[in-house]
Structure formats: C-alpha cells, structure tokens
Amino acid sequence: MTIFLKANWENIIMANYEIDPKILFPFLPKGVELDLYDGKAYVSLVGFMFKKTKLFNVPIPYFGTFEEINLRFYVVRKEGDTVKRGVVFINETIPYPIVAWMANKLYKEHYTVVPTKHEITTERKSKKVQFEWLLSKKWNSIYVEATTEAKVMEKQTLEKFIYEHYYGYTKIDEHNSEEYKLQHPSWLVNQVLDYKIECDFTAMYGDSFSVLNTTKPEAVFIAEGSSVGIEWKRNRLNIGNERH
C-alpha cells in the first residue's frame, strides 16, 4: 500500500472531555456512528510534534517539523464482521500555510494556520511538554508534566480507547465521506503528574464547543509516539440511504 505521508509524531498529549453526543451529530460523516466508551462520547484536545515529514518518501525541506493542535472525536464503522474504529477532526492547526493548503486541497481536510511554538524539557525521571498557539493575539496552551518511564497501555481503559483508533473519516458533504488508514504501533505512554490547559474553545472551534470552556477534562494522557504512515488510498463512502 502506497504511503502518502510519513512522519514522526512525538509527545502526543490528549486532553479528553466527555461531551453531549448531540453536539457531535452535525459533524458526523455519513457511514459512521459515534464510538462510545462506557456509554459516553468524548472529544480530545490534542497537541504533538510533527517531525521528519515526508510526502511519498520525499522529505519536505524547511517545513518538515512543526507543532500540530487538533480537536477530534471518535467514530466506528461496521462492515459485516469488520469493525473500524476511527477519528473525525473538527479542526487541525499548524503553523505552515503551504502544508495546510496541500492537506486541504488534496484531501478536503480542515487545516487552519496560526503561529505555534513548543517547549519540551526532560530530566531523568520527568519531562515537561507544552504546546502553544496564537489566536486573536492571545497564546493558548496545553501543558503536561509526566514521568519519563514508558509503559504499555492497559487493556479496557479510557487511555487505550482514546489512542487506539486507526482510521480517519472526513465529511465531504451530507451524502459523501472519505475513509483513510493510519499505520503505527500501539504507543507507549507516560504517567501524567500535572497538567494545565488554556484554550478558548469558542474562538478556536466555534460556538458548538463553547461548553468546553467550563468543562474539566475527564482525563489527560501523553504518549511517546512513533513513526506514522498515512495511506494514499481513500475510500469514498456514498451512502445516501444509510442512517447513523
């Protein structure tokens, strides 16, 4: 299978909020349904480093390393006995217009461009990771202090549910969606010791998500990450009669 994009994703912070499913329905692509954990729907504010980016195995000079901030939620597509767990992005934010333009043009993604920066400090037993993005002349941020000891995610946990989704779904219009596949191993995680989130969800993601301004995350996780591949092939789902 041809790999369109390959990169290292590192220090992947996930701040996870329980949310009313009704808020997500307008963003739900055709052909998938919400993936719930213990009957609850979640959205995640995500920050991570994008490094060593390659398109069709060709390095991108000058623009291959950057921060990404995104808001995503979780879906599932059932095809007979096959269950595909995936994510839908409300918005993905990066600092480089050319990279955003390419993703939006080729794949009808929802990339926007704002200035970003990061600070990562590592000591023997702990690390501090902070991602920041500038919006309306104010810096927003997501910060985690965590152990450096890496461990395997435990089964049947919210942490594993959040990280273990290997498909992406994009809403093209009311009747069409696209499905693509991500390739990466199950990530190792670090124990979060402390966190701080300063995000204007309304300004960043619209009035639909303003409730998150006054909502405390149910959990905050950080994974070490790995090399990630995104397959070139995208399946167009045209399911006019299918219901969510």
Rank of each mutant, 00 (worst) to 15 (best):
P185S: 13
K181E: 14
Q191F: 12
F221N: 03
C199G: 00
F201K: 14
F201T: 08
F201N: 11
I222S: 02
L212T: 04
D207R: 12
S208Q: 04
K216N: 10
A219R: 06
Y195M: 12
L193G: 14
A223S: 01
D200Q: 04
M204Y: 08
I197W: 10
L212R: 13
T214W: 09
H184G: 03
S186R: 15
E174G: 06
K216D: 11
I222V: 12
I172T: 03
A219C: 01
E174K: 12
S177V: 05
M204F: 11
D200E: 11
H175C: 01
A203G: 07
C199R: 01
V220E: 05
F209W: 04
L193A: 14
L182H: 13
S208K: 03
S186W: 12
P217N: 02
H175P: 00
V192P: 04
N213S: 02
K181R: 15
A203V: 00
D194Y: 13
V228R: 04
S208D: 09
S186Y: 14
E174V: 04
K196P: 03
Y205A: 11
V189H: 12
V228N: 00
L212D: 03
V211S: 06
S210Q: 15
L212E: 08
E198Q: 07
F209H: 04
Y195C: 10
N190M: 14
K171P: 03
K171W: 06
K181P: 03
T214E: 10
S227M: 08
P217F: 01
S226E: 02
Y205G: 03
L188A: 10
E224D: 06
D207Q: 12
K181G: 02
V228G: 01
N213P: 00
